[in-house]
């Protein structure tokens, strides 16, 4: 990627057209490349049953395949159809940390994220993805309503 890179924290169809549409607009204006980062929430410190351990490797492969075909694939097609250069990354782990990490790796100039609008107790106590990104993002962050 030689042009400026904008990272989009892409959760799925709910970010479409919202955050994805706005990021596409900005990328078209600035001539930037989009990097869609889709994170599957995962903690290496969670607890699994013996059966889950046995099946984990196979399930992970299926989860990545499904994310690629149902989530990032259609989004990538839409961006490319608009004539904007784009790539996508699928990662496992903490959304906030990995979006920032990918932004750093790609030398991104801006991060776009959708406002989750979550009113849940968990989001209020532990914070939402936009809040987390607002706290640790090393580059300007755009929260799209």
């Amino acid at each position: 990627m030689s042009s400026e890179v904008f990272v989009v924290a892409y959760e799925g169809a709910q970010d479409d057209p919202g955050v994805l549409g706005y990021a596409m607009q900005r990328a078209a204006v600035e001539g930037a490349t989009l990097l869609l980062v889709h994170v599957l929430e995962w903690s290496p410190y969670s607890f699994l049953t013996p059966e889950e351990l046995e099946e984990r490797h196979g399930r992970r492969a299926k989860e990545i395949e499904r994310a690629r075909s149902d989530v990032t694939g259609p989004a990538l097609d839409k961006v490319k159809a608009a004539g904007i250069e784009a790539e996508c990354v699928i990662r496992y782990g903490n959304v906030v940390e990995l979006v920032v990490e990918e932004a750093g790796k790609a030398g991104a100039g801006m991060i776009f994220v959708g406002r989750s609008g979550s009113q849940s107790v968990a989001a209020r106590v532990f914070g939402s993805v936009p809040m987390g990104l607002a706290q640790i993002s090393p580059v300007p962050l755009v929260i799209v309503p």
């Binding site: 290496p44 410190y45 969670s46 607890f47 699994l48 351990l53 490797h57 992970r60 990662r91 782990g93």
Partner: peptide, 12 residues
């Protein structure tokens, strides 16, 4: 990431 970690195998 997303595979069985050392912690998970130990915990199980």
């Amino acid at each position: 990431a997303g595979e069985v970690s050392h912690f998970q195998a130990l915990a199980t």
